[in-house]
Simulated scan of single mutants.
Amino acid sequence: MNNIIKEITPLTHKDCFSIFSREKKSFDFPVHFHEEFELNLIINGAGAKRIVGDHEEEISDIELVLVGPNLSHGWQTYHCKSDSVTEVTIQWHKNLFEDRFLKKNQMILLREMLERSARGILFSEDTAVALSAQLMALNDLKGFTAVMELINILHELSIAENARTLSRVALDNNQILNPNSRRIDKAFEYMNANYQKQITLKELAQLISMTDVSFSRFISKRTGNTFVDTLNEIRLAHATRMLIETNMPIADISVNCGFNNISNFNRIFKKKKFCTPKEFRENFCGTSVFI
């Protein structure tokens, strides 16, 4: 677990899903997990290594993988020699489809696929090729139309043949770190709703009825990070979204995300993202859409 990080995605409770597409030369994001479902299409990435749960495998030229909430996953450059890899990543909340909806007769195959994704699902190359154009075209759709197209794509995947389960076991990293997650979820919800403000350890401790010292130990044990590092991760998730979606000056983004000064923001951003906010914005090549 020490080498696996929990990612706080920029997806907010008001979004249905996000789609991020880009061209890149290498796979440099570490193995990670997050609360959201993720559907990942990779084209021209032959030789890269796929890691999903306890599974590792070298990939072919095109692949499409569905990863369930809190399942560790990542891709590494490994033997990949391509200098132009296309990657399309779609993420949606784990409660986008309510349980009562998924229990309807017509939703049986979709429900089974989402449940199976707890171990990761690799779809056949034929399926990846057949749906690649639809996945990339999601960037151009808006609102309700985009949501309906995502549902249509998920339906097509649920009836696709020759899909393969990847991890031998379902590894819920959030439960490994957070066996009693109700309190930590409440703390995360508060930080996500108030990240622009100055938040103290004391007010969060009071929120979940703990002493300051107990809460400090509690959040470190449950997340692997200190309170300050956890809050900064949440603020950085919102900051990266602003850097991608807006032309807002970096100093204003810093203030709007709760950092006390631009120097501190730059330092923390570079430590976590391995580049400055300015470099991130300049080097960003791709599109990110939130529906």
Rank of each mutant, 00 (worst) to 15 (best):
W75Q: 14
S21P: 01
Y190V: 07
L114C: 02
S84H: 06
F290S: 05
K94T: 10
E35T: 02
T165V: 14
A205G: 03
D229E: 13
E57R: 02
R241Y: 11
R116G: 02
F123R: 09
G258I: 10
I219P: 00
D54C: 03
M210I: 01
A205K: 06
I90F: 00
F265S: 04
N180F: 11
S209I: 07
L102Y: 06
L110T: 08
F290Y: 15
Y78V: 02
I4T: 12
S124W: 01
E149T: 05
K221P: 05
D185W: 08
S21L: 10
D126S: 01
A46Q: 15
P10F: 11
L201Q: 09
F274M: 12
K202V: 12
V52W: 00
F17S: 11
P30V: 12
N180W: 10
S132D: 09
F259I: 07
K25Y: 03
L102A: 07
T12I: 04
K270D: 09
K104I: 11
K103H: 03
S288C: 13
S117L: 01
E112T: 09
H79I: 09
L71C: 06
S60G: 04
L114D: 08
T165M: 06
E56T: 13
Q196Y: 11
I90Y: 01
N283M: 12
L204E: 00
S167A: 15
Q91F: 01
T276E: 03
A128K: 03
E38S: 09
S181F: 14
L207M: 11
A193L: 15
R235H: 07
T226E: 03
V88W: 01
M136A: 07
F274W: 02
M107L: 10
L110A: 05
F280W: 07
Q175H: 13
S288Q: 12
S158N: 07
W75H: 10
G258R: 03
